[in-house]
C-alpha cells in the first residue's frame, strides 16, 4: 500500500493505493490525523484503492469526525468500486462528503 501527499491550491491531496488493511491502516490513520491536527483541508484520492477493510474505513471516519469538529474540509474523491462497496455496506456513502474526481473535491 502507498500513501502519497501533494499540495494543490492550499489543500492536501492524499492518494491511497493498493490494499488498506489491518497491517497498513495504522499508518493511514496517523497520516490523516496529523493533517487534521494541523487543521489542513484534505481530499483523499481513492481511485487506486484495490481493497479497504474496516480498520481502514475506521481511520477515515475518525479523520472526518475531527475535520467536522475543526470546520475543515475532508472529502473522499474518485472512490474505486471495491472501496465504494465497503462504504455502501455500512451506509457510509451517505455520511462522508464525496466527490467524483479529485478536481471536484478541491472545488467543493
Amino acid at each position: 500500500m502507498k500513501i502519497e501527499s501533494r499540495e494543490i491550491d492550499g489543500a492536501v491531496v492524499v492518494a491511497l493505493s493498493g490494499e488498506v488493511d489491518l497491517q497498513h491502516s495504522p499508518s493511514v490513520r496517523k497520516h490523516l490525523m496529523d493533517l487534521m491536527f494541523e487543521r489542513r483541508p484534505v481530499v483523499v484520492d481513492m481511485a487506486l484503492v484495490d481493497y479497504i477493510d474496516s480498520s481502514g474505513i475506521a481511520s477515515l471516519v475518525e479523520a472526518y469526525q475531527m475535520a467536522r469538529k475543526n470546520g475543515t474540509r475532508f472529502i473522499l474523491a474518485a472512490i474505486s468500486a471495491p472501496a465504494m462497496r465497503v462504504l455502501q455496506l455500512a451506509r457510509l456513502d451517505k455520511v462522508f462528503a464525496l466527490a467524483d474526481t479529485v478536481e471536484a473535491g478541491l472545488q467543493a
Partner: peptide, 19 residues
C-alpha cells in the same frame, strides 16, 4: 489479534453493529 488503537477498535465494532 491486532495492535489497533482502541479508538479504531471502537469504530470498527460499531461499524459491524451497523452492518
Amino acid at each position: 489479534h491486532t495492535n489497533l488503537d482502541e479508538t479504531t477498535i471502537g469504530i470498527v465494532t460499531r461499524l459491524k453493529l451497523e452492518v
